[in-house]
Design a binder for these strands. Sequence first.
DNA 1: TGCTTACTTGTAATCATTTCAATTTTATTA
DNA 2: TAATAAAATTGAAATGATTACAAGTAAGCA
Lengths: 130, 130
Amino acid sequence: MKTNLEGITNKLKDNNIRLSHQRLKVLEYLDRHRIHPTVEQIYHGLNEEIPTLSKTTIYNTLNKLIEAGLVKVITIEDNEARYDINTDFHGHFKCRTCEKGLDGFRIYTRDMYFSGICPRCSEQEKCKDS
Amino acid sequence: MKTNLEGITNKLKDNNIRLSHQRLKVLEYLDRHRIHPTVEQIYHGLNEEIPTLSKTTIYNTLNKLIEAGLVKVITIEDNEARYDINTDFHGHFKCRTCEKGLDGFRIYTRDMYFSGICPRCSEQEKCKDS
DNA sequence: TGCTTACTTGTAATCATTTCAATTTTATTA
DNA sequence: TAATAAAATTGAAATGATTACAAGTAAGCA
Ligand SMILES: [Mn+2]
Ligand SMILES: [Mn+2]
Ligand SMILES: [Zn+2]
Ligand SMILES: [Zn+2]
């Protein structure tokens, strides 16, 4: 549940991702606001502290972090992505009435998405190795 | 696996959804093309048969069918929705390499989304009943 | 057949996300 | 510390999926 920000910055170094002020602030925001925030929420949340912050930077940062496996994108909303610093395997729930994400619920729909590599592409990878 | 189109049209009647030419064609397309098509694919697939068909109608139709529980939307793509006439609970897989949805795979990411009603809203529902 | 209501259509609007080029910052080296 | 190259930030503009809207059309019913 608790993310080690120091550990994350080390991972950034490992992935050759520069430790810019903006990136660290976005990470810190995700760590302190465990509500699967949208880009809009991150933007407004950091606006006071960094008035010059651009939404483009937030998008760039999040995409970098996703690429490095440090953040996960949640597509439970139909029109807006949400972001999660908790990359452990866990489900997400959205209430049909209040539209909040909460614990303890009556479930009506379940969706499971997997991403990986199919047998055909696995086979082609083997060929490359030899 | 096999969908009974006759059964579906009966469900449409039950839900007071009119059996328009366009709606039946969209349903037929979803039934015959079990590839979780996008709106774009449905549009081009039906274009020859119904040259006047509008994308807006496809969106309207799909939203109506989703509302009635006859179709499910799949948000595994980051930028474009896909649609499934199979409403049974089942997972979806996307290959990272060829980007196709297939069977038999090595899994790297798993995502579970639930939708339902939270305890708070459940409680309020009870109050309405009495 | 005629009536009412809901559906279809094309265009325009919306809005999350990406592209782009100029400026700034980071990390490195002297 | 200063110089440098590479990468990041920024804001404006572009993109593109989806929705809103208003006028024309078709479905269902008597
Ligand atoms: Mn989560
Ligand atoms: Mn499916
Ligand atoms: Zn609720
Ligand atoms: Zn593949």
